[in-house]
C-alpha cells in the first residue's frame, strides 16, 4: 500500500478551506496571464466572496476532486489541481491545473503535481482514462503534460479568440494501461 499517495518529489496535494483558497485566487487573478492560461472565459477580477461561492459549489459537486498544491520544501500553497466531470460509468474525467505563483512556473512543480493526481486517478479512483485540454499558446503546459505521459489526441480549430486572433485548443489523454507501462519502466 502506498501511504504517500498524495506526495510527490517537489509538492504534495492537500485540501484547504474555501475561504483560504478564495483569498489566494483573488490575489492570483491580478496576473491576467494566469487567468488566460487557465480558462477561455474572459480574465476578470472577482471578489473573495464570489470566489468562495464558486469554490464551495465546485467542492459540493461529486464529479470533482479538487486539491491544493503545496511545496514540500516550505509548505507554501502555489496552485491548484483537480479532476473534474468524472463520468463514473465510463471511468473517464478531465484534469485541470493552475499555478498561481508564477515563480514556480517551468520548474517541474506542475509536472510533479500532475504525476501525483494521475496516480490518484488510476490507483485510488480506478479511472481508466484522464483527458485534458490546453490552449495552443500554452506550449509550456503541453511539454509538462507530455512529460507526465499525456498523448496528443487532436485539436479544436480556432476555438478561442485572444489578442485579436484565433487559437486552437489541443486535446490530450492518457489511458491507465499506458500509465502503468510508464510506471513499470521507471522501476
Amino acid at each position: 500500500m502506498n501511504e504517500n499517495l498524495l506526495r510527490g518529489e517537489l509538492v504534495r496535494l492537500t485540501v484547504e478551506e474555501p475561504e483560504t483558497l478564495a483569498r489566494l485566487e483573488s490575489q492570483w487573478s491580478v496576473d491576467s496571464e494566469y487567468s488566460r492560461l487557465l480558462d477561455w472565459d474572459p480574465a476578470r477580477r472577482l471578489s473573495v466572496k464570489n470566489f468562495q461561492k464558486w469554490i464551495e459549489k465546485h467542492y459540493e459537486n461529486e464529479a470533482n476532486y479538487a486539491f491544493t498544491i503545496r511545496t514540500m520544501a516550505d509548505d507554501r500553497i502555489i496552485g491548484g489541481i483537480g479532476l473534474e466531470g468524472i463520468r463514473w460509468t465510463h471511468r473517464d474525467c478531465f484534469v485541470g491545473i493552475g499555478l498561481g505563483e508564477r515563480e514556480f512556473w517551468g520548474k517541474g512543480y506542475g509536472t510533479d503535481a500532475m504525476r501525483i493526481i494521475l496516480r490518484y486517478a488510476f490507483t485510488e479512483l480506478n479511472l481508466l482514462r484522464v483527458t485534458l485540454d490546453v490552449f495552443e499558446y500554452n506550449q509550456r503546459g503541453v511539454r509538462s503534460y507530455e512529460k507526465a505521459g499525456f498523448v496528443y489526441e487532436g485539436r479544436a480549430r480556432g476555438l478561442i479568440m485572444r489578442e485579436g486572433r484565433r487559437w486552437d485548443v489541443i486535446y490530450m489523454g492518457i489511458l491507465r494501461e499506458d500509465w502503468l507501462k510508464l510506471e513499470h519502466e521507471k522501476q
Binding site: H90, R91, L128, R129, E153, L175
Partner: peptide
C-alpha cells in the same frame, strides 16, 4: 463537420 479530436476509449 470535420473530425478534430479522438478521445481514445473514453466510453464503455
Amino acid at each position: 463537420f470535420v473530425e478534430e479530436v479522438r478521445r481514445r476509449l473514453a466510453l464503455e
